[in-house]
Amino acid sequence: MSNRIVELEILRYNPETDEEPKFQTFSVPCAEDWVVLDAINYIKDELDRTLSYRWSCHMAVCGSCGMMINGEPMLSCKSFLRDLPDRIRVEPLTNFPIERDLVVVMDDFMDKLDSVKPFLIPREEKTVDEGEFLQTPAQLSKFKQYTLCINCTLCYAACPQYAHNEGFVGPAALALAHRYNLDSRDVGRSARADVVASNAGIWECSFVGACSEVCPHGVDPAAAIQQTKIASSVDYFRDMLIPGRRS
């Protein structure tokens, strides 16, 4: 272990005892290859067992450990201390209610994920004995990027529209709807349109693109939303031009 001492200012809040959140600073002796999560685990194990936060995989795939690190939404397991100054401010993800310390309330996000019908609505019914639906690598590559979302919600913390209007369906859920809409096996686009193409859906997005910048897996929700806007506009004009198309 190196001698580098990192000061972590962590926002603490216990709803049973605290009127409002306040910062507490910990001095942590850190190894050079540590991530912020390692330093937080050190605090938990050695300095203060009352600190609450979520984590599991430590390899940037379970999506549990999103936090604001020096003001930026990041996965704490992928935020290397070597890239950060000796004083690091750690807060719960912004735009979410704090449940306790670094743990935020996930209900709204879970509801939104559910609301876009994020499951395959197949073109045809097929039994397992009839084998798989064919899908070429080219068809797969059309939506593959949008399957990579780990639901870490960093994009909700970054999104100025979600900050402003919590009714906004938001980047990850809209990107997931787009993932299924683009899937050659799926015909659920109209079933998802109620939520996706509503005023709380794609049209609420002002295309700042902050969601795509903070995404740890390059999902690019902003592109998904813009592509959905185009597809939705095409639908709209087609419906106007072809009477009776939409019953």
Partner: peptide, 12 residues
Amino acid sequence: HWGCPWSRKPDG
């Protein structure tokens, strides 16, 4: 059938 994005051969 539930949508898992399995990697594919060129023929699908």
